[in-house]
Amino acid sequence: MGKEGPNIIKKVVTEMNLAEQKNNKNSFVQNASMEQLQLIPGIWVNGHCFWMQNQAEKVIYEEGLVMKVKQEQLHSRIRFSTVYVSNYSNQKKEVRILAMHQYPNPLGEQLTFVSPTDNRIFHLANKAVYMVNGQYNGIGMRDSTVMPQWNAFTDQIWSSLKRGTLKYQPMVKGLAASIFMEYLTIESHETKKMNTWTIWGMNKNEVQSIEKALLKNTLAFPFEK
C-alpha cells in the first residue's frame, strides 16, 4: 500500500466520522423541531381559574360555561388552535382566556422570554426557535408572562387571582411555561373564540417570515373580521 496508505485510510475514517457527527446533529435538530410546544388552554372567571389538561372540551357547571379547543396543522411549521367559549347561563360573563405553552419533552438548554417589542413569546429549545402568538377579534396578546414549569398550575402565576391579572415575569432559563391572556365579554347564550398559533424554525427571522405569510393568507387563517 506504501507509506501514504495508512495516512489516506486515517483521513477517510476521520472524514466519515465528521460526516456522521454532522448528520447526527442535523437529525437531532430535525427531531427536536418536530416536538411542538404543547398548548394547554385555560379560563379565568369570577376569581377562579380552570385548565383544560389532556382534554378537548371542559364544562364549568358552576358558571354555565363550556370550553372547546380545535387544533389544526395548517403547515408543517405551524400549529394553529382555536379556543371556543360558550355561555349557556342567563348572565353576561367577563372572562379571560389563557393560552399556556410548554415543551413536553425537554432536552438540552432552554430559554423562554416575552418580547415586548414584537408582542410575541419565544421559546428557544433544542437549537430551534418557537414563536407563540394569538389574537381575539383582531387584537393581539393582552397580558403575557413566563414562569418556571413547576409554578404553571399554581397561584404563583397571578399577581391577583381575584382580579385576573398575571404576575409579569419576562424571562426564564430552563424548564418554563409561557402564558398569555385575552379578555372576552360573552353575552348569555353566545359563543366566542380566540385563536393562537405556534411557529417553529431555526431562527427568529425564519419564524417571523412564516408568520407574515400566514397572516396574509385569509384562507389558511380564518379570523373573523
Rank of each mutant, 00 (worst) to 15 (best):
V132Y: 03
Q110N: 06
H189V: 04
Q110T: 13
T14P: 00
P41E: 04
Y103D: 11
I210K: 02
I186H: 05
G64H: 02
F153W: 11
I78P: 00
N195G: 00
K193T: 01
S209W: 00
V114D: 08
S209T: 13
G174Q: 04
K10D: 06
M181Y: 01
Q169G: 03
Q30N: 11
K22W: 04
Q135A: 05
K11P: 00
G42T: 01
F153K: 09
L214M: 15
M202H: 14
V69L: 02
T191C: 01
F50L: 07
T196P: 02
V69H: 02
N7M: 13
T196S: 14
Q36R: 10
N87T: 01
K70N: 13
S144T: 14
N151K: 14
L161S: 09
F28M: 05
I179V: 15
P6W: 11
I43C: 03
M131F: 05
R79K: 12
I210H: 03
N24R: 12
L214R: 08
R79C: 03
V172I: 15
K92N: 09
G201I: 03
L18Y: 01
L161C: 09
T198C: 09
G5N: 06
K58G: 00
Y183P: 07
L124C: 07
F223R: 06
F223A: 03
A177H: 01
T154K: 10
E211T: 03
F80N: 08
L219V: 11
K70H: 12
S209I: 03
R77C: 07
A152I: 05
M67Y: 01
M100E: 10
M171C: 14
Q53I: 14
M52Q: 02
E206T: 09
Q156E: 15
Q102D: 12
E109M: 08
I40Y: 10
W158M: 11
Q110S: 15
L98G: 09
G64N: 03
V29R: 13
N23I: 11
I139Y: 09
S178K: 05
I8R: 04
D118I: 04
A56Y: 08
P106A: 13
T198E: 14
V59P: 00
S160V: 04
N90H: 08
S188K: 14
H48Q: 15
G174F: 04
A220P: 00
Q55I: 08
K225V: 01
P148Q: 06
Y84E: 12
I60V: 10
N195E: 07
Q102W: 11
G134K: 05
W200M: 07
S160K: 11
